[in-house]
Design a protein around this nucleic acid. Structure first.
Lengths: 237, 237
DNA sequence: CGACATGTTGAATGTCCTCAAGGTCCGTGG
DNA sequence: CCACGGACCTTGAGGACATTCAACATGTCG
């Protein structure tokens, strides 16, 4: 989790600005040089981190004092049931915000992990609150993030937590393809698949074995190769 | 769906103000008399409706142009799967907002129905947007509503859409008890229970019959009588 | 090398779904 | 008034499916 830069990302000299295309904070621009300095001093700086795969993001934050936006990479949000089981409730990608709950003032009910290597911007909560109040466009962008989180939660309920195990897995893998946006879809472990679909790890393993045998699925080091058309056929029955 | 009043609820003379305790809009107060008139004229009035049980709320809105807050009553939010099945994804009660999606600018992916008779305030979208921008306390209140919707979605995923059928139903009935807040919990049909828990209606019927036989559940005209302690015991195994 | 986490595969069990038949209630129309 | 259809609920029987338990394989890390 190497920290690579330290300054206000709203500054046009911020490293790797191209990656900021989908970031909510971008809606807060432009800023004058004076404002930049003031914000930085008073509310705290935005930091950027390149985080390896399979890392908790909680480690980067003083609890509840920061949000993160994802510039690049895939992140899973885990929640724990009353019975102590840990389940995947959302998958976040570039442009998504981690820790929206902090904005509304609650303790985060989730644990976030990177699935792939990720490029994250850490934003002080105070700064985000301030910009949210001052900049209508940022405010609108944040509403979009809330909405999209809710939509994904609904999609999980309706599609991924419903139906026979192969259908659940097929929809999850379709989602991975979508989230990867052209790039090779991220690989999930059997346990992760099971935790997302609410099925037993053995079942996930059996279905995966079957699909690999049929040639619909191939596993590489850090990615899947998915025959999307074949999975769509699974879903039609 | 009798319309009972027509004016700005922010006006202290608004009917039944006691019920407004939990309303998000209340955070926008106080207003001067002048502001009241202007807002009313420019952005449209807030209307109040008493809606009977089992009514669609969509009928009260020009599509996407209004939000509703619930003063009293229970409302279910339905969504439709790709396969055309209709499922209950959330249960809303007093203080909750129906149609938050409109604020973020998307089409509503849900259909809202009253479960019980309900007392609803219809708020023009333009007014809500305006107040959201002008009044930080309202803005904060709306964030709370987003957060609570997301929390309930997570709770559905983790608790109600997980485990054997009796456990799902037990958790759903526990939720009904909580939402009723001391009053008799609202009655759901077998089909509604099935649509919320993602089980077959026959299964819902079987479990209900069993519990009724054991004396853990009783059905009245419009409510359940629930032995919460007994259901908790079901959940412990 | 051993410990541990992850993945695979088999066999047995249990749960839930499906299909089917029959029951009640209610509103409509003959 | 009664017959009828429709929506909901109930109960049974059969079968499909996922889980559980178990044994074993593989790989990583100390």
């Amino acid at each position: 989790m190497a920290r690579l830069a330290r300054s206000l990302c709203i500054d046009p000299h911020w490293r790797g600005r191209a990656e900021c295309r989908h970031c909510a904070v971008r809606a807060a621009m432009p800023f004058s040089a004076l404002e930049l300095e003031e914000l930085d001093a008073v509310l705290g700086p935005i930091d950027n981190f390149i985080v390896p795969a399979r890392t908790t993001i909680g480690d980067l934050a003083d609890t509840g004092s920061h949000l993160f936006t994802i510039r690049r990479g895939l992140v899973k949000l885990e929640a724990t049931t009353a019975a102590g089981q840990t389940r995947i409730v959302r998958l976040l990608r570039s442009g998504d915000v981690i820790g929206l709950d902090a904005l509304a003032g609650g303790a985060a009910p989730h644990v976030a992990w990177t699935i792939t290597e990720a490029d994250l911007c850490r934003i002080p909560l105070a700064l985000m609150r301030d910009l949210d109040a001052q900049r209508p466009r940022l405010h609108a962008a944040l509403l979009q993030r809330w909405q999209s989180a809710l939509r994904q939660a609904d999609a999980f309920m309706l599609e991924i937590l419903h139906g026979p195990a192969p259908a659940r897995m097929a929809r999850l893998l379709r989602l991975l393809v979508t989230l990867a946006d052209g790039a090779p879809p991220a690989k999930l472990s059997r346990l992760e698949i099971a935790a997302a679909c609410d099925i037993a790890p053995e079942t996930a393993s059996r279905v995966a074995s079957d699909w690999i045998a049929r040639g619909w699925l191939r596993e590489r080091d850090h990615s899947f190769e998915i025959d999307a058309a074949a999975l769509d056929r699974v879903l039609e029955d």
